[in-house]
């Protein structure tokens, strides 16, 4: 009974987090669902073995490892098979000066394009970026999840931000043509 309660609590807390991370890593909804299922089953199998307070890091580390194993096994290319979100089409409006280049970039940005740009990040940069910016993990937690030094997390995060900026600027310049 207690195990079931613990499991249900962990599932409710982390299911979307696991799913979103797997979605960005694998870029395929069905694969992300499979990975999410597998993570939940492993959580159940290890429900008595790990510290409840460290469950968050354990769950995300398991998710990350399974995603990496899956990618290496299937040798996925960077073509997106099923779009993550066909319906979202958010425009970010900015009412500042039209001549301002930042405004031009801002106007042309959509939710789907942001997601696409994040997906296209190299794997080593994408992991810390998604965990920090989208899932709200701290540097130390990310270091444990990815099993890399703290400085590596900070460096890769910075590189990811620069890479993303280049991607989106390129997109914006294409839109202006």
């Amino acid at each position: 009974m207690l195990e079931s309660s613990k499991f249900n609590f962990l599932v409710d807390q982390h299911k979307n987090r696991i799913f979103n991370y797997a979605l960005y890593m694998l870029r395929n909804r069905m694969d992300a669902e499979d990975i999410t299922q597998e993570v939940m089953i492993r959580t159940w199998q290890n429900i008595n073995k790990f510290n409840f307070n460290a469950a968050r890091a354990w769950i995300m580390r398991t998710t990350h490892n399974l995603c990496i194993d899956y990618l290496r096994k299937n040798q996925l290319n960077f073509q997106r098979e099923i779009p993550i979100d066909n319906e979202q089409n958010n425009y970010l409006e900015d009412k500042s000066n039209e001549a301002n280049p930042a405004t031009v970039v801002n106007k042309k940005m959509t939710g789907t394009k942001i997601k696409s740009a994040i997906e296209n990040l190299p794997e080593k940069l994408k992991s810390p970026f998604v965990l920090y910016e989208l899932e709200g993990f701290k540097y130390k937690e990310i270091s444990k999840i990815l099993d890399v030094p703290l400085n590596t997390v900070k460096v890769n995060l910075l590189r990811a931000r620069k890479h993303l900026q280049k991607e989106l600027k390129f997109y914006a310049s294409e839109q202006l043509k």
Binding site: Q88, N90, M109, G111, E133
Partner: peptide
């Protein structure tokens, strides 16, 4: 301003529901 715009867009990305 460019980086702020990107950062805001990233933080506004909608999360998927399982």
């Amino acid at each position: 301003e460019e980086y702020k715009a990107t950062a805001n867009s990233v933080h506004d990305v909608r999360k998927e529901e399982l």
